[in-house]
Amino acid sequence: MKSAKTAKNLGQIFLRDNNIAKKIVNALYYKKTKKSINVIEVGPGKGILTQYLLDSNLLIIEIDSLYVNLLRKKFPNLKKRILNVDFLKFNPLDFNLTNFIIIGNFPYSISSQILFYILKYKDFISECIGMFPKKIGERIVNKKNLSGLTILIKSYFKTKYLFTVNNSVFSPKPKIKSAVIKIIKRENKKNINYSILHKVVKTAFNQRRKKLKNSLKYILFQKNFRNNPIFQKRVEQLSVKDFTYISRKVIRK
């Protein structure tokens, strides 16, 4: 088995508390409805979450071949559904997955990339429960001091802080506490054009000290929309709804 040093280099930390693992899995909506559903588990490591997901249509994605072999021995019935691939490069359409849940104790080094992956496949992901560094978890659910990534996530998903996890229940022990976050797809958000919203958010945050009338001056908006008082504001004064409202007024080329 890998040393603690090697595991840390790969961004791997392993949850050791079965009660916490069960609590994470039981927060999934399908556990309450008792209906089997497509679940993708990301980076299962030794399978502490996996053991509680066997009643679902489970697909496991693990980048480390050592743990892939371990999992295939531990869960022989899942052997063909344990993939040795990089999750960030995984295309769910290759497996005809258009409606699924994501769960995982995500490697902290790719926390932001996981969120961008969720945005990329937002039309297919109904729910995500994951372990994040506590500060990132708080940022995802926070209603103030929003980051550009948080605005994008909140435009398409509801976010909920489930609970804090102490660093003492992990091996190797990280220096920080963790947070379990739940992300649930919002309904009727297909009318928000992601590429336009992303452009507006990115452009505004790149010049966050400027008022919108200056930071967004090269974006074409509908007639007279620039007279809206919202252009006198800076990004820290805006809500998620403000950004989605602005994006709907952009002229599509």
Rank of each mutant, 00 (worst) to 15 (best):
Q232R: 13
L54Y: 01
L115Q: 12
Q12N: 14
Y156K: 00
R139T: 04
V141T: 00
L146V: 00
I13R: 09
I118S: 06
F225W: 14
F106P: 14
K177P: 06
A7C: 15
S126W: 10
S155T: 05
N142S: 15
N191R: 10
S155F: 06
S65Y: 13
N188V: 12
T164F: 06
D64A: 02
I129Y: 13
F221D: 04
R81S: 07
N91L: 05
D55E: 15
N193A: 10
K158P: 06
L53S: 10
I219A: 03
N224I: 01
K35P: 09
R234E: 08
F157P: 10
S168M: 15
L58D: 09
Y29C: 08
V141F: 00
F170S: 05
K213I: 14
R81Q: 02
A179N: 02
E62Q: 04
N99W: 04
V68H: 01
R139Q: 05
L78C: 06
I184W: 07
K5Y: 05
I219H: 00
L49E: 13
Y218D: 14
S126Y: 11
F124I: 07
R186H: 11
G130D: 06
P229T: 03
K34D: 09
Q12G: 07
T98P: 04
N69L: 13
N193H: 11
I181L: 12
P229K: 00
M1E: 09
N38H: 10
P133I: 05
R252G: 07
Q207D: 12
K199I: 10
L212R: 01
E41I: 13
P44V: 12
R81F: 12
N84E: 13
L28T: 02
K122R: 11
P92N: 01
K211M: 08
I251C: 06
A179T: 07
P76H: 01
I129G: 01
N84P: 13
I82S: 04
I63Y: 15
R209N: 15
G43Y: 11
P229H: 00
F132R: 03
I82G: 00
K253Y: 08
K2A: 08
N99T: 12
T6E: 15
L78I: 04
L93K: 05
K73A: 11
I219F: 02
K185W: 10
K5F: 03
K46A: 03
I125W: 05
K32C: 05
Q207S: 02
A7F: 13
N206P: 08
S126E: 14
L146Q: 05
L78P: 11
N191S: 02
A21Y: 10
K213A: 04
K173Y: 10
K135H: 12
V165M: 13
I101W: 13
L53D: 03
N214P: 07
Q51W: 09
L149F: 08
K211L: 00
S56I: 04
V85I: 09
D17N: 03
G47Q: 11
P92H: 02
V85W: 07
K122Q: 09
I61R: 08
Y67G: 12
S178M: 14
G11H: 01
V200I: 03
L15W: 09
K74M: 05
V180A: 08
Y52Q: 09
I13H: 15
K223R: 10
F225I: 04
S168G: 13
G43C: 05
Q237N: 15
S36G: 12
K74Y: 02
G11A: 03
